[in-house]
Amino acid sequence: MQEGVAMYRIRFHGRGGQGMKTASRILGTAFFLEGYEVQDAPRYGAERRGAPIFAYVRVDAQPINERGVITLPDLVIVADDSLVPVPAAGVLTGLDEHTVLLINSDESAETWKDRLNLSSEVLTLPAEAEDRAELRFIGATCTGAAACLLGKISRDALQQAIKEELAQLGDAVIEKNLARALDAYDSMQAHKGCVQTGPEINANDYRKPAWIELPFDDARISAPDIHASANSIQVRTGLWRTLRPVIDYEHCKSCWWICSTFCPDGAITVNGKKPEIDYDHCKGCMVCVAQCPSHAIEAVSEQLAQHQETSS
């Protein structure tokens, strides 16, 4: 452990189910094994597969008093590049010229730099050939790469942390995660230690909070009500989907109720005799796929389906 190291602030972004909480824990444990003080925590609203979540890690030589969301990150890791344009995901919050952005994408770092108008370092993890729904090891890949970029974690500590955090999953899973993490670690050697801690905020020279007096609003305004009905239509939960159910009308027996009845989101309607899936709101839970007695609904990779749509 080095004395006098300032605090590292690291933020992971992903979707529920992609293992960002575990990724943050592996990184936290690896730093802890290297003798650092650590704080790691996931942050999510309603716990749902596919919904944006983030997790953060703070690392210091001293006990850590800072808590809660990281507003000025030194390193931001994005496991799923489709989150960047989702405002609720907050991927770009607080990025400045010192922040390193590590993004899992099949597009180039230059493209992302240009697209987001970033002056900071952008590095990519090549998106794996397997589809997004099968990103079972993206957490390990992200952690391995991050461990190298931060420059304070040895390969040994990384391996040990993975073994500890995944102990309950059995040797086979641990081996696969170790392989991905170490590959990612080695792939970032050229950038080892490139993440720098941010500047401290000076108590004599700070931006004053623009506090205001909250005005009185009458209860028609200030009660927590939404006057519009059916406004959840505005929330495109279809963005959460990693798998897409596709109806094969050749095999559909037009029973007109099974898939639509089982759909927990009411995203299947039967117009006339044909069921139709509302892809703006289907979250991709695949309940319909499991329930259809004639096996007429197929699960396909959302990413591949989108690629085909854009190329056709």
Binding site: A210, W211, I212, I221, I226, H227, A228, Q234
Partner: peptide, 19 residues
């Protein structure tokens, strides 16, 4: 509570009303 936060709140309220 900051000016910015009230602006964000007003935006949410506007969406609800507009809808």
């Amino acid at each position: 509570y900051t000016e910015q936060e009230l602006r964000e709140m007003r935006k949410l309220q506007a969406v609800a009303q507009e809808e």
